[in-house]
């Protein structure tokens, strides 16, 4: 494999990490001032802040790997849908609070596993960012997990809403564990794990919380993926239109 191909694969891989964090952080930031209780408003904006911070680190590194033609902001604000590499799960709209929390919880459980593996990466830069992000992701998982339990084991209404969210989102989780050629190259180089490796751990972590929450693991016979290849849901275009508006409308401006 050529050095150039390796560099391109690493760039793609870093975009995946950065894009997941940025899109989910952006979604959470849509809750600003609209949380069900003040403490949750603060918690959701705090998690959004962590994720946007993580995405900045991943995208800055991606920009360096790419060769410096674009910076992290150009990657965030000047790419269109086909060039985004995040999972479909994180771009799904917020829905009600149960939807947001369940989406977060399914991702957080994955994120913790991924970051644990990446903190042992042969690439020192990746290991460093992952170690820092892991501390935050552990807190995020605790927060979303506690809410899944409260909602599942709360009232009849909250249980129904949490189960509905789980049923609606479950089919997007298959994609989290599907490796492709880029993952394979990262694995070969000792940079990143095979995502399939931690599917079992994820299932156990999710299952334990859902059991405590008296929620049922969906028996989903559907799954949708494609985010890693830039095949997204229709929701992402609207999100980007809003997020990228200023740098697109005023391309010469510095902010």
């Amino acid at each position: 494999m050529t050095v150039e191909a390796q560099r391109e694969a690493l760039f793609e891989y870093l975009l995946r990490l950065g894009d997941n964090a940025l899109i989910l952080g952006h979604r959470l930031s849509e809750w600003c001032g609209k949380g069900p209780v003040l403490e949750e408003d603060i918690a959701l904006s705090n998690i959004a802040l962590d994720l946007v911070g993580q995405s900045t680190l991943w995208l800055e590194f991606a920009a360096t790997v790419e060769g410096g033609a674009r910076d992290a902001d150009a990657l965030a604000f000047k790419r269109d849908v086909l060039d985004w590499r995040n999972f479909l799960l994180v771009e799904q709209p917020n829905g009600d609070f149960a939807h947001t929390i369940v989406r977060q919880f399914l991702f957080d459980c994955f994120h913790v596993e991924l970051l644990q593996a990446l903190s042992k990466s042969a690439n020192q830069e990746i290991a460093g960012i992952a170690s820092k992000a892991l501390k935050e992701a552990l807190y995020h998982r605790r927060h979303s997990g506690q809410w899944v339990i409260r909602l599942g084991d709360g009232t009849e209404e909250s249980h129904a809403r949490a189960q509905a969210a789980l049923d609606a989102l479950w089919g997007y989780t298959r994609e989290l564990f599907e490796g492709d050629a880029i993952d394979e190259m990262m694995m070969q180089a000792g940079i990143a794990p095979d995502p399939g490796d931690f599917e079992e751990n994820w299932k156990q972590a999710v299952g334990a919380v859902l059991a405590e929450a008296t929620l049922t693991v969906p028996d989903a016979n559907w799954s949708i993926g494609g985010g890693k290849k830039g095949i997204h849901s229709e929701h992402l275009g609207f999100l980007l239109a809003e997020m990228q508006f200023l740098p697109r409308a005023y391309p010469d401006a510095q902010w």
Partner: peptide, 12 residues
């Protein structure tokens, strides 16, 4: 919109 969430937390 958050009333059902607060009720759930209290019930739990």
């Amino acid at each position: 919109d958050g009333a059902w969430v607060r009720e759930a937390a209290a019930a739990y």
